[in-house]
Amino acid sequence: MASKNNMYVIVIGCGRLGSFLANMLSNEGHSIVVIDIKPIAFNALAPDQFSGFKIEGDATELGILKQAKIDKADVLIGATHDENVNIMAAQIAKNRFDVPRVFVRILDPNKESFCKTIGIECVCPTSMAAEKMITALREKPES
């Protein structure tokens, strides 16, 4: 990807989702900063794909977000296992630093509408899985 289309992306959480996104986006030529509270989590970043930065720390702390230069971010993705952490970091990004695009992964479908009301784009694997299963059931009813 040409570097003029390069986005500065902060990924919070370097678990399965966070590391997958970080590897993929970095490999596409975007500038990535991954934040995780456990340094061992960074082992999931693939040396042949990931060429970004790693910050060890709690992403709900303002100092850590500032260290990641959140004021310059084009995108913030909340991908930790704790959806409250994701939402809190996303709210800081959106309201305090005016980050143009903010995504979070949440597991509780009841929080989807809350995220929408505060302007955060959310992906809920629980409701996505449920919808897929329901669609599959409707398409191929058991004979």
């Binding site: 040409a2 570097s3 390069n6 500038s31 990931f50 060429s51």
Partner: peptide, 14 residues
């Protein structure tokens, strides 16, 4: 760090 070399190279390549 290979990461930093790559990031800098990518940033300056245009």
């Amino acid at each position: 760090e290979k990461n930093i070399r790559m990031t800098l190279t990518q940033a300056l390549e245009d």
